[in-house]
Design a protein around this nucleic acid. Structure first.
Lengths: 233, 233
DNA sequence: CGGACTTTTGAAGTAATTCAAGGGGAGTGG
DNA sequence: CCACTCCCCTTGAATTACTTCAAAAGTCCG
């Protein structure tokens, strides 16, 4: 009875999409639930990679921290997305830290349980390849942007991606549906919070965005796209 | 008779490592050979992703080009490595261009032939997951470097990776075993050839490297590591 | 030996960081 | 309910690392 909604979530997840009812049921049977409050950590960079999760409700921020303590945000994970990909690809430790930015519900599997399900249902392995492929390509794009574009453009790309991934239509525009500080944007776009602040102030004047304390709304996606495409060059 | 060496190459490749003789034989039977001279293109960014290759001998440079024509080098591929990962992960076009930087021999498969082999031998799918996982992590590291480190450090990291991946011990140090221009290094480290040239000149004075026209030798790996670790901060 | 490509180096310019200070909002505790 | 405190955000000014522009010198190959 409680299972039905979970199966639906699994069916719509990037990892189990297209799997048979049998596979979904089996996957669900070997899963466990996990709940995180805001700022709780799901898995920590450097820890042994023993579990894999699917986000059911909520959102996680995945970061990597340098020896010097600087953080980079690798991505945000929303409903249906996979956390703990290290288990998929046989890495022994988690390369990043996943922290809840909202109240978050997950379904989890131990590495052994997951491998068992994947071995029995090849479609899951194919989905796993797709997940990694998509993320890898995403990374290539970001690397390319970071190598070739100036800050304003990179920030525009960053915000467009966030709007596409976690945007909520409102009367005033597309609102990023979770708390997002200047510092967060800086850690995604490869710059400082100061430069982000200045850039957003400029955009605000032009009516492109509307923002406040840990809150961002895209008012004019068109103009933002033009900036991302280098119209400002 | 000619097959035996090929099977050995396959066995040692990142994609077929650990596969059974039956699987290797089957894979070999459905493969075709391809040979490229220097500067010939194996696959082009944006082209339909219909084939996948393993490098047997030689080396490829994988690049992505922006709308404005700027290039970024995503990676180099040496013997045993896979070219055309798009086929693995179900992308419909190649995200980058692969060009030979040396005379290069490859074994190739059509997408259909490869999927057939992979479906029959799950170990290959697991290897594929590992390949993508390793590349993804590599990309995360580079993104982190690009976001948080200054040019000299990034360049040091770049050269250390090249030395590890394609280094040849010589009397004078570790030589990067393929032609590598200042421009190439710039496109890997996210800077300009001018800055690379100046940096290498500095390193040359300190006896850390020895370089010339499209040629780089690491003389003092220790010192280069220190620079990469931020000792120069 | 000519010509194309690669590298070097100087000088000027600039985007972005760093340093510094202050202001504003949200939540908490008295 | 008000005041206090903690974050987060903003903005100015100084600094700097790097790019861009420019020219010349090597180096390799045919």
């Amino acid at each position: 009875m409680v299972q039905q909604p979970d199966l639906g979530i699994l069916e719509r997840s990037e990892l189990y999409h297209g799997a048979s009812i049998a596979a979904l049921t089996e996957a669900h049977a070997s899963s466990f639930r996990k709940r995180l409050a805001v700022d709780e950590v799901l898995l920590r960079q450097g820890d042994a990679a023993g579990t894999i999760y699917i986000v059911v409700v909520g959102r996680l921020r995945v970061t990597q921290t340098t020896n010097e303590g600087q953080q980079v945000i690798m991505r945000y994970l929303g409903p249906g997305e996979l956390a703990g990909y290290a288990v998929l690809s046989g890495a022994d430790v988690h390369p990043g830290t996943a922290t809840a930015v909202d109240d978050t519900h997950l379904l989890g599997w131990t590495a052994a349980a997951f491998r068992e399900v994947m071995a029995r249902h090849p479609v899951i392995a194919m989905n796993a390849l797709n997940v990694l492929g998509v993320r890898y390509r995403d990374m290539q794009i970001r690397l390319r942007e970071l190598s070739t574009e100036k800050v304003e453009r990179r920030l525009a790309h960053t915000m467009l991606r966030l709007a596409a991934q976690a945007g909520r239509r409102t009367a005033h525009g597309i609102e990023i549906a979770f708390p997002l500080s200047r510092q967060d944007l800086a850690e995604m776009a490869g710059t400082t919070l100061h430069t982000v602040s200045r850039t957003l102030s400029g955009w605000e004047e032009q009516g492109i965005v509307d923002s406040g304390r840990r809150r961002v709304i895209v008012r004019n996606q068109q103009k933002l796209s033009e900036i991302a495409d280098g119209a400002h060059a």
